[in-house]
């Protein structure tokens, strides 16, 4: 599945996003949602962004396609720098960068029929004439496994899974090159989740789509992605080929995430208390390595570490300064 054409499609360099917070008239310290993120996404590649809620993965995904404005850093799409384009200049490029949202109940306008919702993008970008539009909509719906008759219905008449299929059809209808899927299954019933994942996988490989797949479900990530990026408090703490990272995680946070995955459904296991404490406040993140207050392997030097990436295996980088961690065992928790 990896690298249908392998060419660089999307590149981010040193991208940060700080949400300004206002209290009355004074501006206080901003919320640092993403700090100094750099990565590339190749054609046909599925890159997963994982991390707990509040880690900035949604913000990074949105910033990458300029739905959220970056505070610093640069973004290139197909070699063109798109950091400074204004809204109007960006509009024609929207076609290439689409998104599937988490909540299929909120992401479809309740007062717009399915057919019109799917047609909207094609109409905006002049991809179909009025005459061919209906056929194109029918095609788009069939492509995601829906009957074309559904076009005349309103979203309220559809189930969550059907709505998410519509949302996918809407995104694919404009023939994008990059799709950001923001936890596309987390609002759905478990029985429907697998269907949507299979659909995304099938469409992705058939059309050689590049996808930024945001999720906190590591099993889904292992299933769908070629590479994975682990975020903690707005920082990329580790990235690399998914198989490699899951087999041999180099960052203590990645290890903790992997150990938190239940191995067998229904298997009894003791209370897991893998990480101490809670996610720190992103308004005033800890000094040095942002993970050090919760890290079971933290040493004195971590308090002032700069979190620059070092390569531990081909394609795998970590922000951890310790190269002497004990061998990883997914079954056992790490302790100090």
């Amino acid at each position: 599945m990896s690298g249908a054409n392998g060419r660089e499609l999307l590149r981010l360099e040193g991208v940060s996003k700080v949400f300004a917070q206002r209290r009355g008239f004074s501006r206080t310290a901003g919320l640092r949602a993403v700090t100094d993120a750099s990565f590339t996404l190749a054609g046909g590649e599925v890159l997963a962004l994982v991390g707990e809620s509040g880690s900035g993965k949604s913000t990074l995904g949105r910033t990458a396609i300029r739905v959220v404005e970056p505070t610093a850093g640069d973004i290139w799409l197909e070699g063109e720098r798109i950091t400074d384009l204004d809204r109007r200049q960006l509009r024609p490029l929207r076609r290439k960068m689409q998104m599937v949202f988490q909540d299929p109940y909120g992401s479809l306008n309740p007062r717009i029929r399915i057919g019109a919702a799917v047609a909207e993008g094609m109409r905006l970008h002049g991809l179909a004439s009025a005459r061919t539009l209906r056929d194109r909509v029918a095609q788009a719906l069939e492509q995601v496994g829906l009957r074309p008759e559904i076009a005349d219905r309103f979203p309220a008449a559809l189930s969550g899974g059907q709505r998410q299929r519509v949302a996918i059809a809407r995104a694919l209808a404009v023939e994008p090159t990059v799709i950001v899927a923001d936890e596309p299954t987390s609002a759905l019933d478990v029985s429907v989740q697998a269907e949507i994942i299979d659909l995304l996988k099938a469409l992705q490989s058939r059309q050689a789509l590049s996808m930024l797949f945001i999720s906190h479900d590591l099993r889904v990530v292992g299933d769908i992605s070629d590479r994975v990026m682990v975020l903690y408090l707005g920082r990329i703490v580790e990235s690399g080929p998914t198989g490699q990272v899951f087999r041999d995680p180099a960052h203590p946070y990645t290890r903790a995430l992997l150990q938190a995955v239940p191995k067998h459904v229904g298997a009894a296991h003791g209370k897991r208390q893998l990480l101490k404490g809670e996610l720190p406040n992103p308004v005033s993140p800890p000094s040095g390595c942002v993970f050090h207050p919760r890290c079971p392997f933290a040493i004195e030097a971590c308090r002032s570490a700069d979190m620059s990436h070092r390569e531990v295996a081909p394609g795998q980088v970590t922000a951890c300064i310790r190269d002497d961690l004990p061998a990883f065992d997914a079954q056992r928790e790490d302790r100090t």
């Binding site: 739905v67 960068m97 689409q98 479809l108 909207e120 905006l124 970008h125």
Partner: peptide, 8 residues
């Protein structure tokens, strides 16, 4: 947001 992403 979905409409913005579509380019509306």
């Amino acid at each position: 947001e979905a409409a913005q992403v579509l380019g509306a």
